[in-house]
Amino acid sequence: MKKIVLTLVAVFCASMLANSQVVSAQTSSSDTNTGKKVPSVTLKTVDGKSFNTADLENGGKPIIVSFWALWCKNCIKELTAINDVYADWQEETGVTLYAVSIDDAQRNANVKSFANSKGWDYEILLDSNQDFKRAMNVGNIPHTFVLNGKGEIVWQHTSYMDGAENELFEVVKKVAKGQSVKQ
């Protein structure tokens, strides 16, 4: 029983800290967003080329990084919903979306085929060994990050509910204008 209580206390404190960090970031955020740099991990593109995540770059425009997998229903719903409005988002903010698949390597061909058939205009990256997922502290997917023009993580969100892409776009618009993102 003691163990349970202590673990609960630890969990509670840790989650409070995680949240209080969020609050303090909110109060201290200035006009320009600052955040953590994306860790450097070498992934593959669907064509088998190497891609280093430290090279995530979009000419000073915002970037969305979204973790997904073929078995993840809500990931596919989110990416499909975004795809319907992606052209508008790009026109307005210049955003680029990187869809990082964490499927096992055997399904690489299916990932390419799936993304292509859905007409997704995203950059598809393969994180078969889940190195990038671990480095970004992603637990359950979908998990989505927004990066500012300097490639720093300024916003993140887990899970997807119908219509949540609108909130994501509000964040992207603010980041594109260099405004603070309250998180």
């Binding site: 055997q106 061909a109 299916n110 390419k112 085929s113 799936f114 292509n116 058939s117 007409g119």
Partner: peptide
């Protein structure tokens, strides 16, 4: 042994394994 061949273009994809 594992073999897979695929073809895809925008709006269409086929995979055999």
């Amino acid at each position: 042994l594992y073999l897979t061949a695929s073809y895809s273009t925008k709006g269409f994809g086929v995979t055999l394994a």
